[in-house]
Design a binder for these strands. Structure first.
Ligand code: MN
Ligand code: MN
Ligand code: MN
Ligand code: MN
Lengths: 230, 230
DNA sequence: AGAGAGAATTAGACGAGTCTAATGCAAAAG
DNA sequence: CTTTTGCATTAGACTCGTCTAATTCTCTCT
């Protein structure tokens, strides 16, 4: 059996592998999980003993297929829970993350199945992130780009908004920026800010670190990917 | 912050206080939680340090008011979860206990409130056990008696069926014995078995240890207590 | 009152997960 | 090709929850 902690490490490594170039450095894991580097070292050693990661000393780690499956399992739990809390219990979009971060480690497979059924086997969570399927097949995280990477005039649709500070999420939600929102880049200011115009005509200005967290795709991509049911 | 383990100890002490005469002996706690006596000793010492139990060395422990409040809090979580899993996720009556036993320690107060609201602030769980209210006021556990304590001819209503082995629960459920079932004691056999006749006319025979787990009340009591909405 | 039985506690250990302080390695800079 | 610098790892410690073995207490029985 894996502990909740081990699951969190695996999930973090999964995410970090996709954000940068594998292998994932110990210090990066430590930072993500808010522990000291020696703590991360001793944890990745345990993970290695269980063949959940491959490790090159002084370099970093990569998930093995088994490790990736565990990560996908936890991510499936997390995203199903976020969806459930939002859709069935009326949680605000910004409140669900913390709750899911804990419960993901404690629900049974039975609970997972029943929640998935109750939600009609959803493909994406309320942030717009894809939910791994029952078989835990690899998911495509990459059919979207950061809002920050587009120039003035770009016509885009919000694919998802990354998990972060809940005040930020609430702010964006209130401003009308949620998965599915269509917008046009109005101005890319040289001071590290981008202004977008929403469908309804309102404009919203966002500092770069926020624009980085907003994943978008062009309407054509959306059609090609068949993810329009968001 | 209290650990899941501490919560389980407090819940166990709460239950044992009502089953026998306080103070609750260390060995009883150890048995209930399936740990060795020294483990229970060291845990109750910690609980004492935090003023959650009062302890007389070599005698046993009693919950302090704070300890009782924690126990009621955990019991509220447990019973709300059992109700929720049964009513909203379609769990079978016999499957919910294990899941609730874990989740009770990990849901937030927000989750508790929202589940209670979704269920319309239920007063009893699917076993027929009372759910402590939001204020965690003491609950009356004792307005029912064991089926085993009644003689032939007694006309009774099942108040609740105690948490136990899930095969037993399934068996009783299939036999038609659930909270609210009306029955008459048909025969009390000298070999440690009691036979009851249900409303529909079917008879069911039960060994004493099962008849002990079934709490009943006379129809008059039911009216007096106003608990008929089970 | 004294002895013995039975229960509770103390002693000492261990794994998990974490920390701080000390040390070691490797890649970049000279 | 050597030095520096910055991670990574090792060493050693601590808490939590648990165990086994040894000891001590309490209560009942003679
Ligand atoms: Mn988590
Ligand atoms: Mn699962
Ligand atoms: Mn529990
Ligand atoms: Mn609560």
């Amino acid at each position: 059996m894996l502990s909740a902690k081990m699951e969190d490490y695996l999930k973090a490594i999964y995410r970090l592998e996709r954000e940068g170039e594998p292998p994932v450095a110990t210090s990066t894991i430590a930072e993500t999980l808010e522990v000291t580097p020696p703590t991360a070292t001793s944890m990745v050693e345990k993970l290695e003993d269980r063949d959940l990661v491959e490790r090159e000393k002084y370099k970093g780690v990569t998930l093995t297929p088994e490790g990736e499956t565990v990560a996908l399992e936890v991510i499936r739990h997390h995203r199903l829970l976020e969806t459930f809390l939002t859709e069935e219990l009326g949680y605000d979009w910004s409140e669900v993350h913390e709750e899911a971060e804990i419960l993901e480690h404690h629900i049974s497979e039975e609970f997972e199945r029943r929640v998935a059924a109750a939600l009609d086997e959803p493909a994406v969570d309320p942030h717009g992130d894809p939910i791994p399927n029952d078989e835990l097949e690899p998911i495509d995280d990459h059919s979207a780009s950061a809002l920050a990477d587009h120039g003035e005039g770009a016509r885009l649709e919000v694919a998802r908004v990354r998990d972060r500070d809940s005040e930020e999420l609430t702010y964006l939600d209130d401003a009308g920026i949620t998965p599915g929102t269509k917008l046009v880049v109005e101005e890319v200011a040289p001071i590290g800010m981008v202004t977008v115009r929403l469908d309804g005509g309102e404009t919203v200005s966002l500092p770069d670190h926020i624009a980085d967290a907003i994943q978008v795709r062009t309407p054509e991509d959306a059609v090609a990917d068949g993810v329009s049911e968001v």
